[in-house]
Computed example of a mutant assay.
Amino acid sequence: MPIYASDAQLYRCFETLFSQIEEHDPQAANALLKASLAIRFNCTKPAAAITIDARRAPVQVLYGPAALKPTVEVGLTADTLHCLLLGELRLRKAIGRNLLDLKGPVWKTMALADLFHHAQNLYPAVLQDNGLPVTCPELGRG
C-alpha cells in the first residue's frame, strides 16, 4: 500500500515541508537559483507532479500539472521520493535499481543537495503531523 493515499495528501505534506524549509533557512534555495534550475518530480502511486522553478527569484513550487518546461524531469513513485527524503534510500542506489527516470542535464540535480538535506531534517515531523509512517516501504519498480 502506498504511503500517500491521494495526490491531495501528498501535496499537503510537501507544501508544509517546503514552507518549513523556507522558514528555517530562507537561503536554502540559493544553490537552485545559481544553477537556474527548474525541476519536475512526476510521481506515480498516486499520480502527482511537483515543479520547483528556480530560474529566477523568488523560487516557486507548483503542485499539479504545469505548463512550464523543466530543465530536469524525474519520474518516480511517491514511495521512492518518500524514501529519498527519509534518507533511507540514496540517490545512487535509486538510479542503480531503476527506481528513477531522469531526463535532462542530470548533473544540474547536484544543486538539490542542500534542499534535500533540509528536507531530510524536517520531513519526519511533517509525516508524523499528518499521521503517516516515518518508515520506508519495500520498493519495487513502478
Rank of each mutant, 00 (worst) to 15 (best):
M1A: 15
A5R: 15
Q9W: 03
F14C: 05
F14G: 01
T16Y: 14
T16M: 13
F18Y: 12
S19A: 10
I21N: 10
E22C: 07
E23F: 14
D25A: 12
Q27S: 07
A28I: 01
A29M: 14
N30K: 14
L32Y: 03
L32M: 05
L32H: 03
K34I: 12
A35P: 00
A35Q: 09
S36L: 02
A38N: 09
N42V: 14
C43N: 10
C43I: 05
P46E: 08
A47C: 02
T51H: 11
D53Q: 03
A54L: 07
R55W: 00
R56D: 08
V59E: 04
V61W: 09
V61K: 07
L62H: 13
Y63V: 07
P65Q: 14
P65I: 07
K69L: 10
K69A: 08
T71W: 00
T71A: 04
V72S: 08
V74N: 06
L76W: 05
A78G: 05
A78I: 02
L81Q: 13
L81F: 10
L81I: 00
L85G: 01
L86I: 06
E88T: 11
L89W: 01
R90F: 09
L91G: 14
L91K: 15
R92L: 07
R92K: 08
I95P: 06
R97C: 12
R97L: 13
R97P: 01
L100P: 00
D101L: 06
G104Q: 07
V106S: 02
K108Y: 03
T109C: 13
A111M: 08
A111F: 04
A113H: 10
L115M: 09
N121E: 15
L122R: 02
Y123Q: 02
V126R: 04
Q128M: 14
Q128A: 14
L132D: 13
V134P: 05
T135Y: 02
R141Q: 08
G142I: 07
G142Q: 15
